[in-house]
Nucleic acid binder design. Structure first.
Lengths: 351, 351
DNA sequence: CAATGTCAAGTAATCGGTTTCTCACAATCT
DNA sequence: AGATTGTGAGAAACCGATTACTTGACATTG
């Protein structure tokens, strides 16, 4: 079943059928209705590859992410929200995993694979890994959208996340609860997004007049395993930490896990704050206080940026910047610092 | 840059270039090497849509899953493992989310969308939702693979999961720890996979001579929220339950959460067993004892089934069945039943 | 009433590959 | 030597759509 078959059944030319399918406005509505009926009765759907070949557009957008394994649902959420935006607008989505490595070869390959499929636009959401390929990036008139980084050139949009607001709320929250010695667990600082988060934290600490202690900033993987290891190391050397902020929720979950395993309690002995607000954050024990970086908003912003660019006739000179806010969500993993707290035998202070 | 350009640069015909790209064995190796160099130097990659159009094969396999949102990483893991298998074999992957609804319309639409893209084969891993579309399934010579269900017809493979083995190990484990009153949290029993898990549980209970009490089987959503709600209801009516088995890890996490919120402890007051063994299961508090259904093996089995079928010249009459085992993984969410246990004020019985 | 303009619908070139068919040339056989 | 077979490479048809260009019917104008 192809367009010729439809044309002959409806007794019109293939060009007319094509025009009807593509909603070209000059076709007679009566004729259009008749042909549409034929199309529907035949259960015909145009071959997307033929359309892509002939028109040069695939109605598909690419999405490059780091990876979704290892139990960190942030990227997962992002993908599904992005897919929803795409399909709502009649677009397909092609995901490519650049894999959790800093091998810029792999990311470049990922981008190449996506482009080979002739997608109309690409969102690059690897949260910092893309920095490595910015120089070798040839902007071939394909609309692109980056997060945090990205050159100010035509056809490239940029989502700039305001880490500061949410992190400031978190630090102020902890300080208001009496915490003074606050550790910060970061993932690999090669990732620009994690540098920005750490910098925001340090800035807030000094803003509030607390002493900044570099021994309290621990670099590990930004994963559950990493959070666990970081806490294990921290508790060995720094006995008087009463609160821990983490660069993402996965690390926070690992942190809680290790804190409990070390015989301490959250939040009675140590308060924990995450970052991202993944759905799981509501279901940890205890539910996690965290800084929300809305995955839904991020996906929507990115897709709409691409769509806007696709629909623009003339590209905008320096690209477009879209701001995205972050916000503290208070749950139960943070509490007033306990007075007579002592580490190796957290004295129970009743319910 | 297209195949004609390469042909003229290499001073051969386009047919020869095409043969070289597709590794047709009859071309002269010396010539091939020369042309390959030209291809490489030009940075040429064939247009996949043109190839698909001309050859009828897309080198892409479809994957239909329920959905990946809501924080259940099982499907997420599946997708990434599947993608790995595909790309290792030079295939692309097209994911379609049938969305968490029993609207068979949506699943059929999902399958249609995937087929419209002319994928070479499709894996349907919605864990029971696909039952609803089996009747309206036209097997158009596209290889398909199902999990648990699926007709025994040519070009359709089937992965049949042995739920019994793992669940029997789990029940025996609990009974050995002294548990007698074991609740079972199931998701919606419309899903065949969940019916099979429940049936296996009931069979094990009677096998071991325990009294089977239908009040102890609670049907809710198979999600963290569902697990939480199920436990809330259970603790209101059944005070003497000492262990809970869940139809998946997500529900188990929700269950633990509610148990703790109700002032009880896991595993001291109530033991909890999950199902799936998602990566997160190692990082709950406490780490979850669970029945492993290897996502990696499942993905590999499914992809290889499709690949085998694609490479077969003559289809096998009744399709092929591939077995997949399950296995108990013991962690810390299960423990000896406590003697003087009483619900509303779990008396601490020391470490 | 002839000339011109408008507009919907048709004809055919095109997108970038694959694959069938054909042919030139070399090797083998009688 | 001449006929037969085999082999590697080129010419051209084809996949299923889009779209620039063309046509022809009808309306408008001088």
């Amino acid at each position: 079943m192809n367009i010729r078959e439809i044309a002959s059944r409806a007794k019109v030319s293939v060009a007319t059928v094509s025009r009807i399918i593509n909603r070209v406005p000059t076709v007679d509505p009566v004729l259009s209705k008749r042909v549409r009926r034929v199309i529907h009765e035949a259960g015909y759907h145009p071959n997307p590859h033929a359309r892509a070949l002939a028109s040069g557009r695939t109605r598909t957008v690419g999405l490059i992410v780091s990876e979704i394994r290892g139990g960190n649902p942030f990227v997962t959420e992002l993908i599904q929200h992005f897919e929803e935006c795409a399909s709502r607008n009649g677009y397909g989505m092609l995901v490519s995993f650049a894999t959790q490595s800093f091998d810029s070869q792999r990311i470049a390959e990922s981008l190449r694979r996506v482009r080979e499929h002739r997608v109309d636009a690409v969102a690059i959401m690897t949260f910092g890994m893309e920095e490595l390929l910015l120089d070798r990036l040839e902007v071939k008139n394909t609309p692109l959208v980056f997060v945090d980084v990205g050159p100010a050139v035509p056809r490239v949009s940029n989502i700039s996340i305001d880490y500061m607001t949410g992190i400031r709320q978190a630090v102020q929250h902890l300080v208001a609860l009496g915490h003074r010695k606050i550790a910060y667990l970061t993932g690999e600082l090669r990732l620009s997004t994690l540098r920005e988060r750490r910098n925001a934290f340090v800035k807030c600490i000094t803003e509030l007049g607390l002493r900044q202690d570099s021994k309290l900033i621990i670099e590990e993987e930004h994963s559950m395993q990493g959070g666990k290891r970081a806490i294990a190391g921290l508790l060995r050397t720094e006995k008087r930490v009463s609160a821990v902020m983490c660069c993402n929720d996965a690390a926070a979950i690992g942190a809680i896990h290790q804190i409990v395993e070390s015989g301490l309690r959250v939040p009675e002995d140590i308060s924990v704050v995450g970052f991202d607000d993944i759905p799981l954050a509501q279901f940890t024990t205890p539910p996690l206080t965290t800084v929300r970086l809305s995955q839904e908003e991020l996906a929507r912003l990115a897709f709409n940026a691409l769509l806007a660019d696709l629909e623009r006739k003339k590209p905008i000179e320096n690209g477009v910047r879209y701001p995205l806010q972050t916000q503290l969500i208070i749950r139960n993993s943070t509490a007033l610092v306990s007075r007579g707290r002592s580490h190796r035998n957290g004295m129970r202070n009743g319910a």
